[in-house]
Design a protein around this nucleic acid. Structure first.
Lengths: 337, 337
DNA sequence: TTGTATGCGTTATCAA
DNA sequence: TTGATAACGCATACAA
C-alpha cells in the first residue's frame, strides 16, 4: 500500500503539498498539482480513511438513520444506499431510528456523537424536521434529503415525481378504456399520499372522469386490512369501479385478494395497479402493474452530492428529480365487455 | 473525550498497563487491574476504535456479506444485526453478495481487503462454503455462522431448530382436528427446506397421518406462482386437505390467495400456516399463523461470540440453538363440520 | 509485573 | 507557493 510519503518522494515534493493537492487547496501551483496527480496515478495511491479520521476526527462514512423497515420502501432504499456506497468505495454508518421517540434531535445528536460522520442522508420523515436541520447546520454536517415534502435552504434534495407517476398510472387505466376508477390513498400525514392522490385527480380531470362518481377515492392508510375494507366497499357499489389504483403495492395486493374473494377475476373483471414495485408485487400472480421508484439512481445521486463539496458551498439548494419507471404487468387490462 | 493517557494518569500506572488491562492480557496483577477499571469507569473512557485500527491495521467493525434481500429473511436478519451492533456500540461493514458470481472466495477476499475486518458473520449460503472457511482461517479472521447446514470446526454457529418448529406447526394443525394436511416445501437445495419437511413428517407420523394420502407434500420452491399452482392442485384432489403448512410466509399467502379464488374461506374451510413471520404475513387478513425466527437473539449472540475472544481459542465449535416463537393467528382454525 | 519510546498515515502549525 | 515537524490515540518492541 502506497502512502502519502511515497507519493511525495516520487513527485519530489513535501507531504504537505501532496495533502494540499488531494484536498483541493487553492495554494498549489498547476505544475506541482500535475506532478502530484501523476505520482498518485502511478502508485495507485488511495488516501487512508482511517488515518484521515484519526487526524480530523471526522469519519468519512456516510450516516443514515432508518426507520420502520417493514414498509419495504425503507429496506429497498437501504439496499440501494449500500450499493451506491459500495460502488463509491465508501462506508455507511447506519442506525435504527425510533419514530415514536419524540425527541428526534436527541437521537440524531447521539448518532453524530457516536459515529462522527460529517455527512448524512436524511430520509422521510426525518428530512422534514426543522430542528434536525438546525442541528446539522450547527454541527457543520453536510446532508442530502431524500424525497422531502419541502425544499430546505442549503440542503440538496433528491426525489422522484410522485404526482406525475400517479397521473401516468391513472392515464394508463383510462387509455385501457376504464371509466370508473378508484384510488385507495395512503396515510394522511405522509407526503406521497397527497402527491399520488393529486396525480390521480389530474388524470381523472383531464380524462373526463367525474369526481365522486367515476373517480372514487378511499383512505387505505397504507394498511392491508383497511385497504381490503375499502375494496369491499368499492366493489359493492351499485356502479362498481372496473379499476383500482392503490397508493402502494401492499394495498394493491389487499385489493386483489378481496376482489378474488368476491369472485372477481384480476385483471379480466377488475384491474389493479400499485406503487413502489416491491418484491411481493413482482412475484404474485398476476404480477402487479406498478411504479418503480428510481431508488438506485436516487442513492447514487445522494452519494455523489455528498462527496462533491463544491455543491455545498452554494447556499441555494437544488432539488434533483429523477425519472421513475412505470411497469405494466398482468394485473391491468381493458374493462369487461 | 478521555484518552488512555488520562486513564493511566488517574490510575497511577503506565499506558501500556492500561492497554494490557483493556485487552485482557494475562500479565496484569489483580490490584492493578482493579485500579485501571475504576479509572476507566470514573472517566467514562471508551477506547478509540479509529486509533486502534490505525495501529493494528484491522477494523473493529463486524463484516457481513448479504445476498438477495427480496426474500425478507435477509432484510430481517440485516436489521437484527444492525440493532445488535448498535447495542454493542459496534459498527458493521456490510456489502452486497452476488450469489450468481461463481467465485465466492474472490468476493470475500475483496471484501476483507477493502474493509480490513477482523471478524465476520456468515449467513446462508456462504456459511456452507469450505473454500470461504479456508480463506478466513488463513487470514486469521474470526467468524460466526448463522444457520449453517453443517458444523464447521473452529467456527461457532447460531441457529434455530427448524425441524422442531415445523413439527410444532403441524402438531398444532393436528390438534385442531385436521386429518388431511399438506406441506408446500421450499427450494430443494436450501437447508431449511429439508428440515422443515422432516419436521412436518415427524408430526405426521406421530399423529397417525398416512404419508401420500393425508400427509401430502408438494414442491413450491419458495416461489409464489408455484405455490399457487401447488395449492390449486391440492384443493382439486378428491379428498382435499383441510390445512396447508407452507415452508415460508410468501407461499402461505399464495395458498390463501388461491384458496379464496376457488371460493374457500380461510380459516373456516381451510387453514393455512407459514414460516418466518414476515411483515406481510402480519398485515394480511386473516393474519398468518407462523413461526418467528429468533433473529434478534441470533444477531445478539453472534455479536457476543465475535467479541468474546476466549471462545475463539478453543478448537471445538459450539452450535447455539436459540428458541423460536410459534405464533398462532387467524389463519388456522378447526376443520369444517 | 510494569514502564518508555516509537510508529501507524494523515493534516495543521508555523516558518521559509 | 512550499516544506519540516508535531500531533491525533493506541499498541507493541524492548528495557527494567
Amino acid at each position: 500500500m502506497a502512502t502519502i510519503y511515497d507519493v511525495a518522494a516520487m513527485a519530489g515534493v513535501a507531504v504537505k503539498t501532496v495533502s494540499r493537492a488531494i484536498n483541493h487547496h487553492p495554494n498549489v501551483s498547476l505544475k506541482t498539482r500535475a506532478k502530484v496527480q501523476q505520482a498518485i496515478a502511478e502508485l495507485d495511491y488511495v488516501p487512508s480513511p482511517i488515518a484521515r479520521q484519526m487526524r480530523t476526527g471526522e469519519s468519512t462514512a456516510i450516516g443514515m438513520l432508518y426507520g420502520d423497515p417493514s414498509s419495504g420502501y425503507q429496506s429497498q432504499l437501504n439496499h440501494a444506499m449500500l450499493k451506491a456506497c459500495s460502488n463509491a468505495r465508501l462506508y455507511m454508518a447506519v442506525e435504527l431510528f425510533d419514530e415514536s421517540d419524540s425527541d428526534w434531535t436527541a437521537q440524531v445528536d447521539r448518532f453524530i456523537q457516536r459515529t462522527k460522520v460529517a455527512s448524512m442522508v436524511l430520509v422521510p420523515p426525518i428530512c422534514d424536521s426543522a430542528d434536525v436541520h438546525a442541528l446539522l447546520r450547527e454541527q457543520g454536517i453536510r446532508s442530502v434529503l431524500i424525497s422531502p415534502s419541502q425544499p430546505v435552504p442549503g440542503c440538496n434534495a433528491v426525489c422522484m415525481d410522485d404526482r406525475a407517476a400517479a397521473k401516468q398510472v391513472t392515464r394508463h387505466l383510462i387509455k385501457l378504456g376504464h371509466q370508473r376508477i378508484a384510488h385507495i390513498a395512503g396515510r394522511e400525514n405522509h407526503v406521497v399520499t397527497l402527491l399520488r392522490r393529486l396525480g390521480f385527480e389530474d388524470a381523472a380531470v383531464s380524462g373526463g372522469l367525474e369526481p365522486g362518481r367515476t373517480a372514487l377515492v378511499r383512505e387505505g392508510r397504507f394498511n392491508f386490512k383497511e385497504a381490503m375494507d375499502c375494496t369491499k366497499e368499492l366493489l359493492l357499489l351499485p356502479e362498481r369501479p372496473t379499476a383500482i389504483f392503490a397508493a402502494n403495492d401492499h394495498m394493491a395486493i389487499a385489493a386483489i385478494m378481496m376482489a378474488r374473494q368476491m369472485g372477481l377475476r384480476v385483471p379480466e373483471d377488475i384491474s389493479v395497479a400499485g406503487f413502489d414495485d416491491t418484491w411481493i408485487g413482482q412475484s404474485i400472480w398476476p404480477s402487479l402493474t406498478t411504479v418503480a421508484q428510481p431508488l438506485e439512481a436516487i442513492a447514487t445521486m445522494a452519494v455523489e452530492l455528498l462527496q462533491d463539496r463544491s455543491t455545498q458551498a452554494e447556499t441555494l439548494s437544488t432539488n434533483h428529480v429523477l425519472p421513475h419507471e412505470f411497469i405494466v404487468r398482468g394485473s391491468t387490462a381493458p374493462p369487461p365487455e
